[in-house]
Design a protein around this nucleic acid. Structure first.
Lengths: 319, 319
DNA sequence: TTGTAAGCGTTATCAA
DNA sequence: TTGATAACGCTTACAA
């Protein structure tokens, strides 16, 4: 495998000159430049990027931590990140964690080892303190509502969104409202629970623990939700579903079982994914792609900021 | 940032000894080992992995090229790859191409530059000759039915699968059969078209170009399919749909429009994703996760092989 | 069991 | 405009 030294010999110049040509630096005569370029061509030369990294201390690699790569929520977020990455000439290193802390630690370790320049954590399992410990090694940005810390964040306000959606359902006459989430832990889930509890308190409703349905990630989980609801003696009349896929699954299942929507059960989805539009599902639009873009920018620039992006209720046919 | 030299000084040993300790090599006295470990701890030392890469010529990084990261087909494939990667202590570098050749070339370039050790291309846009040109720089494996070449491949036989499915529908009394695919180009699509044409010829059926519906990727594309079908003067009575998501979208759309399945329209999906089970869709099971695993193994080991994995018809309620 | 020193392939500093 | 040469931080013969 030819290297820069070989090129220098072939072109009859110094390695410095070769490096200059390779990196488009000024102060190289046209003549020598062509000689180098010619040598590159005939030798089929390619830079060893690892040497570049070692020398420059940069990798143009950004890590992205997410629990599942096969979920549309993260798919969309990733899309936004990837778009910016392309523009900035960065490559992405994916860490699919399945919510296992050990996988997150691997990503943090790669940051320490300078294998990646910075890290975006789309959904976190490890402690915030663990994150902070790794901050000296490079920018880490989070996708959750945390402010005034050392970490940059981009997020939507899930508390406000939840309150807004609950109030909307309440105005429509519902007072038995349940909600579906992915996992119970995590900042987002915590915010939602707070919102729900505050809502229940405000209107003097009964707080029922089983109105909170967890482990709802995919379309097919809709089945499970309906099953669980039907076993209750006082099932909710409306459901806040934090994923359009799950909402779509619920709607489908209801059609199969001849449960009328929204009469017997009202549904509000989340994200405003294409599937929600197709199935005419009322949903909360989350600007996932924009969030991805913003996360990337925070990560490359390494500047500390906490940015809230707006969400919006989209009224359709399931409420 | 402390380096191996600093550690050596701190522990009162040579850099070699430090390196030995760091890599668990034998022939280090317990005493010196502890001294080094202590130095590592107090200095909060972390290897610069780029130096390791430069020195060893390896990166433990594998590239994965796929068109969309937000599609369940590739999600499942990726899952299989990721599982093996974990076991082999490899990290994955993701290249989301949106079927743009330039993105594929970026991946190939990273292979040339030794930034990744090997490359898995889940779906290809560039020429096979382009792939072959890059083979000297590291293993490249493909997920399509190509044999006897320089490249390793793992695939299912889409020709046979299609024939089998078409025959099955024919036996069930269908002779106006259409099919939905993603893109028209690519080895898989080509195989399917061949199978379809051969089937049509075998049974002396009329070949109708508009029975081939392309750009079907997601659930929401089901709508489009039904719309297109309904505009035909002689619409197909059965559809082979190369993605369970799209099949599910079609089934959903049919329910909305009171088109009876399978009486008015029979559907066969592909992949046997969870959504197919939930919606009781007859489908062809493709061992995507296993394929992912196999692709990874071929890529790490760098041995040349072409492996066909079996697919299986799963009879459910849509035919 | 330990250490010296020569790579690995770049970039960057400095002098010419 | 050019070129020596010293980093960058690690691994690994080879010698002791």
């Amino acid at each position: 495998m030819t290297n820069i030294k070989d090129l220098a010999k072939m072109a009859g110049v110094s390695v410095t000159t070769v490096s200059r040509v390779l990196n488009n630096h000024p102060y190289v005569s046209e003549e020598k430049k062509n000689a180098v370029l010619e040598a590159v061509k005939v030798s089929n030369y390619h830079k060893n990027i690892n040497a570049v990294h070692l020398s420059t201390g940069k990798t143009l690699l950004m890590g992205v931590v997410l629990p599942f790569s096969d979920h549309p929520y993260f798919g969309l977020l990733l899309k936004g990140i990837a778009k910016q990455a392309l523009e900035y000439n960065y490559k992405l290193v994916l860490f699919q964690t399945d919510y296992m802390e050990s996988r997150e630690l691997e990503a943090l370790q790669m940051l320490q080892q300078k294998q990646i320049d910075s890290l975006i954590i789309c959904s976190r399992t490890c402690d915030l303190s663990t994150i902070e410990e790794h901050l000296p090694f490079g920018p880490i940005v989070l996708c959750e509502n945390i402010k005034g810390n050392e970490v940059s964040t981009t997020f939507v306000n899930h508390y406000n969104i939840f309150v807004e959606a609950l109030e909307y359902l309440y105005r429509k006459g519902h007072n038995k409202i349940g909600y579906c989430i992915g996992r119970r832990s995590g900042t987002n889930s915590h915010e939602r629970e707070m919102a729900y509890r505050d809502f229940v308190k405000k209107y003097n409703l009964l707080y029922k623990p089983d109105y909170t349905l967890d482990e709802c990630f995919y379309f097919e989980d809709g089945d499970k939700v309906i099953k669980q609801i039907q076993e209750m003696d006082a099932p909710p009349t409306a459901l806040l579903v934090t994923s359009d896929q799950v909402a779509a699954g619920i709607v489908t299942c209801c059609k199969n079982r001849l449960i009328s929507i929204p009469d017997e059960l009202a549904i509000i989805g989340f994200d405003n994914q294409p599937i929600a539009k197709m199935m005419n599902i009322t949903t909360i639009e989350i600007p996932l792609e924009d969030m991805g873009k913003n996360l990337f920018l925070q990560a490359v620039n390494g500047d500390l900021s906490n940015e809230e992006l707006p969400a919006k209720l989209i009224e359709r046919g399931t409420v």
